[in-house]
Write a protein that binds this DNA or RNA. Structure first.
Lengths: 183, 183
DNA sequence: AGGGTCAGTTCATTCAATGAACCTTCGCGG
DNA sequence: CCGCGAAGGTTCATTGAATGAACTGACCCT
């Protein structure tokens, strides 16, 4: 996708769409952001869920941190381990992902709904712009509940995909650590 | 950008966002679609406005036609000339471009508004989801009026950029032909 | 016949993506 | 204190796509 020579070519474009694509328009980048919304925070989890080459993932994470979309922060000291979490700027990408997902679901032929997104406060399924049709408000991603749809593979090969099978609230980190599994 | 080996890698992803990116996630693709919304329809106009390599543009246009986003149709017989116009499926990408543009304008540092988008019926500037805050309705792209903003280069090098300087309604084709210029 | 427009295609070069292997730090079990 | 494995990378050879310049071909005008 979207390659890194973008700065060179898109920069001269007087257009905010081009500027956005300079940051998130490369291959894998928006999928990394999507996984961050789903609660993925660690390098290895991104890696197994996306299937991207390690070097590309490292480059994308670093670029997203530099662009202020992700924040890299220490979650344990020994051994030192960092996690990547969405900043306010990253959270602002939620409408982009909503719009892309809605288009992929409605307009790409042969697509079965994979996941449904609901307003956690009232249970209503979100409208096409990420708003709650019942409450008439735009729903921030932290108030979105993700539910499995008919098209979701019930037995994904990777553990991250398995952790994302059930109903989950966005932005809640994936379970980890000794108690993490399924106790 | 997002590159053409996408089919291979994104396809196994059970996700409508990934499916959307398979179609519009490659480098240049979304900029082609943006220009189509602005009224660009001809190969040479895309070429001069985007600055993309000719071979890449030809490949992207063909891929978008095959994906049903653009329709290629004959507009004159001799010499045979085709133009590329958005289909219903392509028009459905408008929220994606709106969301990307809003993010690029609000969240990418150092960005000055380049263009403003208004509801042609009432003149109100569109909200972040492409809705009209006054009329409380989602505004279809054909009812959107594009107006120049402070960040717009007043003298672009290419004629297409010059034709897009003023206030224009989306989807209206660029002027062409003997009367086209600025009479 | 010559020049110009439009819409491409071809081709050599450059640049990024891929995937496998390797590296480092640490925790743990014996 | 030795070996093992996990986490989070880096390095490297190979593949593949993007780039830009040149070329093609159909047609029109003068």
């Amino acid at each position: 996708m979207v390659p890194m020579a973008l700065g060179k070519d898109y920069a001269h474009q007087q257009c905010s769409i081009a500027r956005a694509l300079e940051v998130v328009g490369e291959r894998w980048t928006l999928l990394v952001v999507r996984d961050a919304f789903y609660g993925v925070r660690r390098y290895n989890d991104f890696l197994t869920h996306l299937g991207a080459p390690r070097a590309v993932l490292a480059a994308r994470l670093q670029a997203l941190v530099e662009a202020g979309v992700l924040d890299r922060r220490r979650y344990q000291e020994s051994p030192p381990r960092d996690e990547y979490v969405l900043t306010a700027r990253g959270l602002a990408l939620w409408p982009v992902l909503r719009a892309l997902g809605a288009w992929g679901r409605d307009e790409v032929p042969g697509a079965v709904p994979v996941r449904h997104f609901h307003h956690a406060d009232c249970g209503t399924e979100l409208g096409p712009y990420g708003e709650c049709p019942a409450c008439r408000v735009p729903v921030p991603p932290g108030d979105v509940e993700m539910r499995p749809g008919a098209g979701l593979d019930p037995d994904p090969g990777d553990p991250v995909g398995r952790a994302l099978l059930g109903t989950r609230r966005l932005l809640v980190p994936l379970p980890h650590g000794p108690e993490g599994g399924n106790s």
